[in-house]
């Protein structure tokens, strides 16, 4: 991972940013897509114009794509497969009492 400010520059010269939108209070920010912008402030403004023009959100995060550390497809087997046979991690073996809503 480079900390060079030019890291992640596209060939047109503007780096790529990932956009996260929170649809309403109480929900989490969800990844909505990406865009190009020369700096963080303009990334935020571009995100507003591209991803919230139909009232999709009340809050926005932008993160420089080059600052995200992602899991690699090569590691998928060792990262994710071991969870596959551990059904006891799901809360499916409890009796749900009657009259308990929203569980």
């Amino acid at each position: 991972m480079s900390t060079d400010p030019a890291a992640g520059m596209s060939e047109r010269g503007w780096p790529l940013w990932e956009v996260f939108v929170r649809a309403k209070r109480g929900l989490s920010h969800v990844h909505a897509g990406s865009l190009h912008a020369p700096d963080a402030q303009l990334a935020l403004q571009n995100a507003r114009d591209l991803y919230t023009r139909r009232q999709e959100g009340v809050s926005l995060w932008v993160v420089r794509a080059s600052d995200i550390t992602a899991s690699s497809p090569d590691e998928r087997d060792s990262f994710f497969d071991p969870a596959a046979d551990k059904v006891y991690r799901h809360p499916t073996f409890y009796e749900v009492p009657e009259d308990v809503e929203y569980l």
Binding site: R12, W14, L35, H36, A37, Q45, N46, D49, L50, R53
Partner: peptide, 11 residues
């Protein structure tokens, strides 16, 4: 300069 700015000015 970029498609993002097309959208901004269109908005």
């Amino acid at each position: 300069p970029q498609v993002e700015e097309d959208m901004a000015l269109g908005n």
